[in-house]
């Protein structure tokens, strides 16, 4: 899976993109976020307030129960502030 991070999530995690292989039991957006939190303090800190984290799967806004698999592009970011 291709993971992308933007804005302060990118700063807190320390990278903007990475390729990962999901554990077999992770198959939805909520699972990805929960799994990422276990990967280190930087992830745990960045995703601490996960209610405000927005997730897009293949460049479309997703919900916690949106299914994901290893071929997907999943992006995590804060609420948008453009315009």
């Amino acid at each position: 899976m291709k993971l992308l991070y933007f804005a302060w999530l990118k700063q807190k995690i320390g990278i903007g993109a990475e390729e990962v292989t999901l554990p077999d039991e992770v198959n939805d957006v909520a699972g990805v976020v929960a799994w990422l939190k276990t990967r280190g303090d930087n992830y745990a800190t960045a995703l601490k307030d996960d209610a405000i984290v927005r997730v897009a799967v293949n460049q479309t806004y997703a919900k916690p129960d949106t299914t994901v698999s290893n071929g997907d592009e999943v992006a995590l970011f804060p609420p948008v502030t453009g315009g």
């Binding site: 804060p78 948008v80 502030t81 453009g82 315009g83």
Partner: peptide, 26 residues
């Protein structure tokens, strides 16, 4: 269009302030 753009389009503003750079909150 501008109302939807502001809440949907994936842009983030990083402001330069006298105290350093700071991400604008939604």
């Amino acid at each position: 269009l501008i109302d939807w753009l502001k809440t949907q389009a994936p842009f983030w503003k990083l402001e330069e302030t006298p105290d350093g750079a700071s991400w604008v909150e939604a």
